[in-house]
Amino acid sequence: MTLSLRLPGPDGLEDYRLAGEPVAQGTYEPARSRLAFAAAHVVADPLGDNSPGQPAVVDWEHTLEFRRHLWSLGLSVAEAMDTAQRGMGLDWAATQELIRRSAAEAPDGRIAVGVGTDQLAAGNHSLETVIGAYEEQLAVAEDVGAQPILMASRALCAAAGSPDDYRKVYDRLLNQSSRPVILHWLGSMFDPALAGYWGSDSLDTAADVVVELIGDNVSKVDGIKVSLLEASREVALRNRLTEGVRLYTGDDFDYPSLIKGADDAYSDALLGIFAAIAPAAAAALKALDDGDLQRYDEVFAPTVPLSRQIFSAPTYYYKTGIAFLAWLNGHQPGFSMVGGLQTGRSLPHLADTFRLADQAGVLTNPELAVSRFKRLLLVGGVEA
Rank of each mutant, 00 (worst) to 15 (best):
L3F: 05
G9Y: 00
G12I: 01
L13F: 00
E14A: 09
A19E: 15
A24W: 05
T27C: 14
A31C: 10
L47E: 08
S51A: 10
P52A: 00
D59Y: 03
H62P: 00
L70N: 06
A78W: 12
E79F: 09
D82A: 13
A93M: 08
Q96F: 10
I99Q: 12
R101V: 03
G114N: 14
Q119S: 15
T129W: 07
I131F: 00
Y134D: 10
A139C: 10
M151E: 07
A159K: 02
Y166I: 02
R167T: 02
R167S: 05
R167Q: 09
I182G: 04
P192W: 11
L203S: 10
L229A: 07
E234C: 04
L237A: 00
N239W: 04
E243C: 00
G244Q: 03
V245N: 02
R246L: 11
Y255V: 02
K260E: 15
A282T: 06
G291V: 15
D292A: 07
V299I: 15
Q309G: 00
F311L: 14
I322C: 06
W327H: 06
F335V: 02
G339A: 09
L341E: 12
G344D: 15
D352Y: 05
F354W: 10
L356D: 13
V362W: 11
N365F: 11
F373M: 08
L376R: 08
V382I: 14
A384G: 14
A384I: 08
